[in-house]
Design a protein around this nucleic acid. Structure first.
Length: 277
DNA sequence: GCGTGATGTTGAA
DNA sequence: TCAACCTCACGCC
């Protein structure tokens, strides 16, 4: 589930349900019990996302810092909550809503200084509006344009861009016809700013729909005269997890490879080596 | 029931 | 480069 769009959506969902209202916190699984006791009774002051990090604000105890990792999941629902299962790390509840957090990489009380340090080591986030603070494509370009690392690896590096995950990486490179193995320094500035602008659009759409859709209208099943895709992870995509299937655009075979322990997907026909535009 | 893999990150070697 | 961490859904028996 979790790329940046999921986390920003969760921040908005938490503001809507919990902001300004006293919350009851508990940790049925136990690992967050002491902290939950401290948080109980306080109102949530705000909820904020940077990349894949979620911060829930509480005036007295500081922030609850949450990172879902690969497996983490949040369930939101209306009160009353069901009996908690023993994998729930954190449950928040008020009179109208509850949230259950399972399997996170991180769930910890965090000071303002610690939170600042996290912001400082994250790159610009296409979903954050504060361009005045260097949250812009040029900040990322400084790293990308100097790096011999492949653009596929750079896009997953949270110091370069915060919030992009394996799906957005594969899809945005496809949409721009860029070979994933292109070194960052071989990209043109125009290619990079186009990728960034596209990430801003795609990820905002991801927040809105709560899923990843990347296929342009002219390539949808309807427009291409092909049967609708039956998909197990939500959105309509060009290449992600479509290894050995036919490309929606050129009909060629989608390829997959290991890159830095993650699955990479691309279409060699649409993303030829050293593609430049 | 068991084995596998997954939209992620860290820290040791 | 690799293991470790955390959970759950799926395919196959």
């Amino acid at each position: 589930m979790p790329e940046g769009h999921t986390i920003h959506r969760l921040a908005a969902d938490h503001r809507e349900r919990f902001e300004g209202r006293p919350v009851r916190a508990s940790s049925p699984q136990g690992k967050f019990s002491d902290s939950a006791a401290l948080v109980t009774g306080q109102p949530m002051t705000t909820a904020e996302a940077h990349g894949k990090h979620l911060f829930l604000g509480f005036a007295e105890t500081g922030w609850i810092h949450i990172h879902l990792g690969l497996f983490g999941k949040v369930t939101l629902g209306t009160a009353p909550p069901p009996p908690p299962t023993d994998t729930v790390r954190l449950r928040l509840a008020n009179d109208t809503a509850y949230m259950d957090l399972r399997g996170p990489t991180t769930c910890a009380l965090t000071t303002d200084e610690e939170k600042q340090a996290i912001h400082a080591r994250l790159g610009p986030d296409p979903l954050r509006p504060d361009t005045a603070d260097g949250n812009d494509p040029d900040t990322a370009w400084r790293r990308v344009s100097r790096s011999r690392t492949t653009i596929a690896a750079l896009l997953l590096d949270q110091k370069v861009v915060a919030g992009v995950g394996n799906v957005y990486r594969a899809e945005v490179l496809f949409r721009h016809g860029i070979d994933p193995y292109t070194p960052g320094k071989d990209l043109t500035y125009d290619q990079w700013t186009a990728i960034w602008a596209d990430l801003v659009d795609l990820m905002h759409e991801g927040v809105r729909l709560n899923r990843i859709d990347t296929v342009r209208p002219e390539h949808t099943p309807d427009a291409m005269g092909r049967p609708p895709r039956v998909d197990d992870h939500g959105g309509e995509v060009y290449v992600y997890r479509r290894a050995r299937q036919a490309c929606h655009v050129c009909g060629g075979e989608i390829r997959t490879a290991d890159l830095a322990a993650r699955n990479l997907f691309w279409c060699p026909g649409c993303q030829p080596p050293r593609a430049r535009r």
